[in-house]
Design a protein around this nucleic acid. Structure first.
Lengths: 125, 125
DNA sequence: GTCGTTCATAAGAGTTGACTTATATAAGCG
DNA sequence: CGCTTATATAAGTCAACTCTTATGAACGAC
């Protein structure tokens, strides 16, 4: 499954947002997703599988728990693809400032707290 | 249809790559895509429709031809979403250099010549 | 060992999406 | 006007994706 296909699903995007805040167990992810999208535990597990299989996450076992974390590799690929279009909206002269701002923000706040988003499923269409 | 869903299809990504090189008519796009993916004219037209309807392109009529061009708006949204993950692979100290390199390249070559890609359809799965 | 957790997989249903062929619309040209 | 070119739409088929419920496997506590 291609990276963009994986990101096509709002639930998977949301899971990645959650993981952007740091490692979470399958159960913790499931709790949030169930609440926000009203889908079953197996459904969430299947999404986690897709993310795992396509390289978006790593997993490690801790007892009976499975701890998921973001693996940025495929996201970087997406970013690279996007690269060629950046000229359409990025003002060359502003680029430096943007980049500096980004760097500065990062240093203050290394783990951006995943913007609380789309509580319902209707985003999909 | 969500931006990521639109980009989920390799044909549509390829069309955008082609349009990144500048305005093209429906027919010109169709010629390339037919050759590379072996699909019919209506199939290409339908992809163009999706791109149009979801805001990825603008169209203008010139006689009987329809000239398509990239509208970056949804791509920027994708870029914004990606933003929160950039810290995973972007070395803060290198960021400035990267940005400068990008700017310099752009100035030399304002329309990057869409990397010749995926000639077959098997990329899809 | 047995019971409760935590998580994954299996099998099946419903929906969506991406093609196909056939056809419509509309402009350009003789 | 009729013919050709350029492009879009219609209708139908087939495959893929995302759920559901049911169940399995592994660990921890007792």
């Amino acid at each position: 499954m291609h990276a963009f296909d994986v990101l096509g699903d709002p639930v998977r995007r949301r899971i990645l947002e959650l993981l952007a805040g740091g490692e979470l167990s399958s159960g913790e992810v499931t709790t949030v997703i169930r609440r926000e999208y009203g889908i079953s535990q197996p459904a969430v597990s299947q999404h986690l599988r897709v993310l795992r299989d396509s390289g978006f996450t790593t997993v490690r076992a801790e007892g009976t728990r499975r701890l998921y974390a973001v693996d940025p590799t495929p996201l970087r690929e997406v970013d690279v693809w996007l690269e060629r279009f950046r000229g359409f909206w990025e003002n060359r002269l502003d680029a430096l400032a943007t980049e500096l701002a980004r760097g500065r923000r990062r240093r203050r706040d290394p783990d951006p707290p995943a913007t609380p988003p789309a509580p319902t499923r209707d985003e999909q269409t």
